[in-house]
């Protein structure tokens, strides 16, 4: 592609780069892990797979706690995080996301705590009550989980950042696919081979969705696609693709027999998902630094 001809103010950027740091990219990953772990945990609960259930519920809570930490410390004024709760604003994906997480948290927490009751107190009344509540809690968490995994795509797209905005049709599918692959990866790492069949299937489905949608992002975002195809974003996403597809192949074949292979496949899927999120984040940041991503498409639109 020839270098686009355009004018600018001394080559300086038109837009401000996002002030978000690596923590937000990391949150995109941990949020996805939590959501699909919650789904696996609820499914395992209903189909009698206790080890997968435990992995799913604890993974969902652990990743949610990591998410909360990352979101709060990325604020310019972390001690004011609760100001998010003073309004509910449909025009702000971050406000919508806040309330999605508020709806998601309690069920996720309760289902996970039920897995942690020590044997000694298992038959006490509170523990029995908790066990009774764990299934509806886990199901409520699973009901909100798809929203947790997908709203983050809108969070990025509803900005003036060219690479994120122009990819708004494909990004949600990359994100839910990536979430599915990552949560399934955690299931493969933590659950025995005998219970992990649903995680293996989810790994393949998620990896396929992520890989296809990730390719579409590169080719259907106009000039902004270049931000995905070049530089650090490209390197991160290339490795993401290798790891995700490798992990899915592993889940398809050797992970059905060998626990060690399942662990390796699961780790590859987790790493692939994380790199995908960091790659997308990086592409967005790059697209704000070069004025061509702003000026050239807008100029074409006007003429």
């Amino acid at each position: 592609m020839p270098e686009a001809d355009f004018r600018s103010y001394y080559g300086r950027p038109v837009l401000k780069p996002p002030v978000w740091e690596w923590k937000i990219a990391a949150y995109l990953f941990t949020g996805g892990v939590s959501a699909s772990s919650a789904l696996l945990g609820a499914g395992a609960d209903l189909t009698g797979r206790p080890a997968l259930r435990r992995a799913g519920r604890l993974g969902a809570l652990g990743a949610l706690m990591a998410s909360t930490y990352l979101l709060v410390v990325d604020l310019g004024r972390p001690e004011r995080f609760h100001h998010m709760l003073r309004v509910a604003k449909p025009s702000s994906p971050m406000s919508v996301g806040t309330w999605i997480l508020v709806a998601y948290g309690p069920g996720t927490g309760l289902a996970a705590v039920a897995e942690l009751v020590p044997r000694a107190v298992r038959e006490t009344l509170p523990a029995r009550l908790l066990r009774r509540l764990a299934r509806p809690a886990g199901l409520s968490s699973a009901a909100v989980a798809p929203a947790v995994a997908s709203y983050t795509a809108v969070l990025l797209s509803q900005t003036a950042v060219p690479a994120w905005h122009e990819a708004h049709r494909q990004l949600p599918f990359v994100f839910t696919g990536s979430a599915a692959a990552a949560g399934a990866g955690l299931g493969l790492v933590c659950a025995p081979v005998s219970e992990a069949a649903p995680a293996r299937r989810l790994a393949v489905a998620g990896a396929a969705l992520e890989s296809v949608a990730a390719r579409l992002v590169e080719h259907r975002s106009g000039l902004a696609g270049e931000a995905y195809r070049t530089g650090k974003a490209h390197r991160l996403r290339k490795w993401s693709e290798y790891l995700t597809i490798g992990g899915a192949l592993g889940a398809l074949l050797p992970a059905r027999r060998s626990r060690a292979a399942a662990v390796v496949s699961g780790l590859a899927l987790l790493a692939g998902s994380a790199l995908q999120r960091f790659g997308i984040f990086e592409a967005g940041v790059e697209s704000t630094k070069d004025p061509k991503y702003v000026v050239v498409p807008q100029r074409q639109r006007k003429s």
């Binding site: 837009l15 401000k16 996002p18 002030v19 978000w20 990325d74 604020l75 310019g76 004024r77 972390p78 004011r80 995080f81 100001h83 998010m84 003073r86 702000s92 971050m94 509803q158 900005t159 003036a160 950042v161 704000t288």
Partner: peptide, 12 residues
């Protein structure tokens, strides 16, 4: 009120 979430920076 502002808690420095930074969303407005990318929204402009």
């Amino acid at each position: 009120i502002c808690n420095g979430c930074g969303y407005c920076v990318s929204g402009c």
